[in-house]
């Protein structure tokens, strides 16, 4: 116990936990919308696609300034989300196929560019690969500011466009009949998603970022039937995963933060699936068991 208290007062821990906690809030909120829109894996595609953006930003500017690199990732993410929308809307290729193609192609482009960057004159590209797996432990106060500002931007937009996003999520056809432009709302949604993925890259990395969107939202869905409740709970679960994951990974040696956060989020999702009242598996098994018993009783009476 004393160790944990010591840990909480540790500056590095505070910074990292603050960063991952904020990240959990933002991805929890955004994840709710993507999960309800059945586009859970879009985050996966966009996060992989961010790699070439990061490398191109490095090659063009020669700096390893986080803001610059993340800006590159942002542009690449927007391009890939645009391409996926384009392909699925105008050809017969389905959403998940388009996603898989662009994900691998963009990541491949990133690898090709990375190998090119390795021969770059001022060749210190060592920091770039941290975006693949993420390194929350390298978080500095400045990085937390980036997460906080970008996260605030996302949350404010969600708040402002709340009813548009809501009607768009549950009934896109109705939204269109009300006169909302599907293209515009798609763009807003994609922008929010890309921004929140990009700020997570540093901490969790491209491969695991998508889990931060899905697991908290799926967990929240089991407890709440309203969008507002789901968003709120999802944000709480996201933050819990972030802080808890950071705590566990700093308490033991050789535990990478990103994967531990993902495991925490998955455990929360697992508990919710099992024990949520009403929807949960335990409850529905109990209900079925009771129904069967009742049925047997009735049969006995009839006989």
């Amino acid at each position: 116990m004393k160790g944990i208290i010591e840990l909480f007062s540790d500056y590095t821990f505070q910074i990292v936990a603050l960063g991952t906690g904020l990240l959990g809030v933002v991805s929890g909120v955004l994840g709710t919308f993507t999960v309800l829109r059945r586009q859970s894996l879009l985050g996966d595609g966009i996060s992989h696609a961010a790699l070439p953006g990061v490398v191109i930003a490095f090659l063009l500017t020669g700096t390893k300034n986080t803001e610059v690199l993340l800006f590159g990732a942002l542009i690449a993410g927007l391009i890939v989300s645009f391409l996926i929308t384009l392909v699925t809307r105008y050809t017969r290729v389905k959403f998940n196929t388009a996603l898989a193609v662009f994900l691998s192609v963009f990541f491949g482009l990133g690898l090709a560019l990375l190998s090119y960057a390795q021969r770059h004159p001022n060749a210190n590209q060592a920091g770039l690969s941290r975006f693949i797996y993420g390194q929350a432990s390298t978080f500095l106060a400045r990085d937390v500011w980036i997460v906080a500002i970008a996260g605030l931007f996302v949350l404010i937009l969600v708040f402002l466009f709340w009813k548009e996003l809501k009607v768009f999520t549950f009934d896109p056809t109705f939204a269109q009949s009300l006169g909302y432009s599907r293209t515009r709302l798609d763009m807003i949604m994609n922008l929010l998603l890309v921004v929140s993925i990009v700020i997570g890259l540093q901490a969790v990395g491209v491969i695991l970022m998508s889990a931060m969107f899905i697991a908290p939202s799926v967990a929240a869905r089991q407890w709440s039937k309203s969008l507002g409740g789901m968003v709120l709970l999802s944000a709480v679960f996201g933050a819990m995963s972030g802080v808890l994951g950071t705590l566990v990974s700093s308490a033991y040696a050789n535990l990478p933060t990103g994967p531990v956060i993902v495991v925490c989020a998955s455990i929360i999702a697992g508990i919710s699936l099992l024990f949520a009242p009403g929807r949960g598996l335990v409850h529905s098994f109990y209900r079925r068991y009771k129904a069967r018993k009742e049925m047997k009783g009735k049969q006995a009476l009839n006989a």
């Binding site: 894996l41 998940n96 799926v218 535990l255 994967p259």
Partner: peptide
Amino acid sequence: RLMVEESAIGIVYPLFFSIAVILISR
């Protein structure tokens, strides 16, 4: 039926992958 197919994949694979990375680094 507590989640759609995409979400199920999106939960399972990062979890498996994370466990692998944790095992390797530890």
